[in-house]
Structures are given as C-alpha cells and as structure tokens.
C-alpha cells in the first residue's frame, strides 16, 4: 500500500521507499521506516496532501507520497 492511496483520517506505518533520492529528503523531514504516518487532509484540488508524522505536519504531492510504501 502506498501513502498516496490513503484517505484523510487514515493512517499507516512507513515500511520503505521506492526512490532513493526522494527517501533522503523524506527521512530528513522525519519520515522514517517504522514511523506512524496519518493523512490529515487533501488540498481542495485533490493534490497535494497534508500528513502528520513524528508530531508535526508536512505537505507533499501525491507523486511524492506514492514513493512511500506502508506496512
């Protein structure tokens, strides 16, 4: 399951990433394997999405979210 497939209010736990370069940026921002992640809301036009991870909110595009595989 990819993060981009979650609906607002749903959550999951990060398993791995499909893109090494993107994973570096994501991990720097606190999205680490094993970390719970929750989709808070999706922007009015359907993209990007707002997520909560390790206590704060990030916004990322669905394309970027699709590189995060959940367990």
């Amino acid at each position: 399951m990819k993060l981009s497939q979650l609906e607002p209010g749903q959550s999951g736990i990060i398993k791995e990433f499909t893109d090494v370069e993107m994973s570096i940026k994501l991990m720097e921002m606190g999205c680490l394997p094993g970390e719970p992640i929750r989709v808070e809301r999706i922007a009015p036009f359907g993209d990007p999405m707002a997520i909560t991870v390790s206590g704060y909110q990030l916004s990322l595009r669905k394309l970027e979210a699709s590189t995060i595989i959940l367990r």
Partner: peptide, 11 residues
C-alpha cells in the same frame, strides 16, 4: 534542482 514540494506546515 529537483522540484520538491515536501514542505512543513507550521503550527
């Protein structure tokens, strides 16, 4: 530069 959009939404 690769166009990232991973951005913090501050409180």
């Amino acid at each position: 530069e690769r166009g990232y959009f991973i951005m913090e939404l501050p409180v």
